[in-house]
Nucleic acid binder design. Structure first.
Length: 191
DNA sequence: CTCGGGATGCGT
DNA sequence: CGCATCCCGAGG
């Protein structure tokens, strides 16, 4: 399994975001190796991006985003869901890529079609904040990715971000059924 | 210290 | 559309 390098994450955030599509997120917790293919991401462009938490400056919460690339930024949202991000660009930029959806590949039993859901399914929580993505327990593998058609849309849930609200910074693999906004039929048995 | 909102998801 | 539910940043 070919782990993505520090240099990869150190690139421009939009470049990293798009390049992460189709790659494999690997979590080795609890004696289990879970793997999911990244099918949806969002780019958060540092201090000037009003949708980015780093736009509040360097705080206890955002410090990791201002650190070196290739580290995890995990936070709790709405009191119940975790969101998993990967820090990008050289130290001081405050940028990151939010992983929004996965396609289950191995040992995944819960839904993964949203940022909170995939953290739950992968076992990612606040203890993984600031975790190094070059470690052996949590990383992205650079598998051979076939050519993808990438769709760009505005980011989800950032209506408050003024002029950044409509920037096309959400990227997903076209037609992939695990992308978050695809309306899911309720999983229920109609008899 | 209090207060208010949020990079969500699910049910109605 | 409402709500669960809690961390964090702002302000006094």
């Amino acid at each position: 399994m070919n782990k993505l390098s520090r240099d990869f994450y150190n690139q421009d955030t939009i470049t990293v975001a798009k390049a992460l599509l189709g790659k494999h997120l690997v979590c080795r917790f609890d004696g289990l190796e879970r793997i999911g293919k990244i099918v949806e991401v969002e780019a958060y462009l540092g201090a000037h991006d009003l949708a980015c938490h780093a736009s509040k400056g360097i705080t206890k919460r955002t410090a990791v985003m201002y650190g070196p690339a290739g580290f995890a930024y995990v936070y709790l949202i709405y009191g119940m869901y975790h969101c998993f991000n990967i820090v990008t660009e050289p130290e001081g930029s405050g940028s990151a890529v939010l992983i929004r959806a996965l396609e289950p590949l191995q040992n995944i039993t819960a839904p993964t079609h949203g940022p909170g859901l995939l953290c739950n399914a992968m076992g990612i929580n606040l203890s993984h904040n600031q975790h190094d993505l070059l470690s052996d327990t949590l990383f992205v593998a650079d598998n051979l990715t076939p050519e993808l058609t990438i769709t760009e849309t505005p980011r989800i849930g950032v209506h408050y971000a003024k002029e950044w609200r409509d920037s096309l910074l959400r990227f997903y693999i076209e037609n992939n059924p695990y992308v978050s906004t695809i309306k899911k039929k309720r999983i229920s048995n109609k008899t």
